[in-house]
Amino acid sequence: MATIASPQDIETVLEKSQRHIDNDTIHFEERYKNMNFLNSNGISIDDALYYVYDLIYQDYFNGPTQERNTSFAQGDMWEFGISGLISPDEVYVKLKELLHVDSMICLSFHKAERPIIYPYRT
């Protein structure tokens, strides 16, 4: 079952992501799927982080969930969607808030593979 955070908790993590973008302490994961999406839509990593910066709590749909793979740094995963701003497709965004260091990772930024249901959109 999906974990649904409160609007206040979502806004807190989004404020953290904005601070990390401002301080250049967010890492954009250059996975094939992410980079292929960026390249095919003519946007840079900085552009992608601009869209992350502008996320609002209504763009949220899941989290926090914990990292399941113990070979990676432990952290909380937060999932968001962006509709109609970048491409006709919905964009899936996954942020990871690292637990033991003051940093964040944008793990996913690509076309959503399934429809996103937003708990705070009417």
Results as ranks from 00 to 15, higher is better:
12 T>Y: 11
30 E>Y: 01
116 I>K: 09
39 N>C: 04
23 N>L: 11
78 W>H: 07
55 L>A: 03
12 T>Q: 15
37 F>E: 08
94 K>E: 00
79 E>K: 14
92 Y>H: 08
78 W>E: 06
11 E>N: 15
35 M>P: 03
103 S>G: 13
33 K>P: 02
63 G>T: 09
46 D>C: 00
109 F>P: 07
108 S>C: 11
115 P>V: 05
31 R>N: 03
95 L>S: 03
25 T>G: 07
114 R>Q: 14
39 N>W: 01
5 A>I: 11
76 D>H: 10
34 N>M: 04
9 D>P: 07
71 S>M: 08
75 G>D: 03
16 K>I: 08
19 R>L: 12
107 L>W: 06
99 L>A: 12
106 C>R: 00
13 V>K: 11
114 R>P: 02
5 A>F: 01
104 M>R: 03
46 D>W: 00
58 Q>D: 08
108 S>E: 00
52 V>L: 03
96 K>M: 11
18 Q>P: 04
5 A>T: 12
58 Q>T: 15
7 P>S: 10
72 F>S: 08
90 E>S: 12
46 D>I: 06
65 T>Y: 02
30 E>N: 07
95 L>K: 03
104 M>D: 02
106 C>A: 01
80 F>N: 04
117 I>L: 13
93 V>A: 05
115 P>N: 12
65 T>Q: 13
68 R>S: 14
21 I>S: 07
61 F>Q: 02
121 R>E: 02
112 A>G: 11
27 H>P: 02
11 E>K: 14
61 F>R: 08
50 Y>G: 14
27 H>V: 12
93 V>D: 00
114 R>H: 14
63 G>H: 03
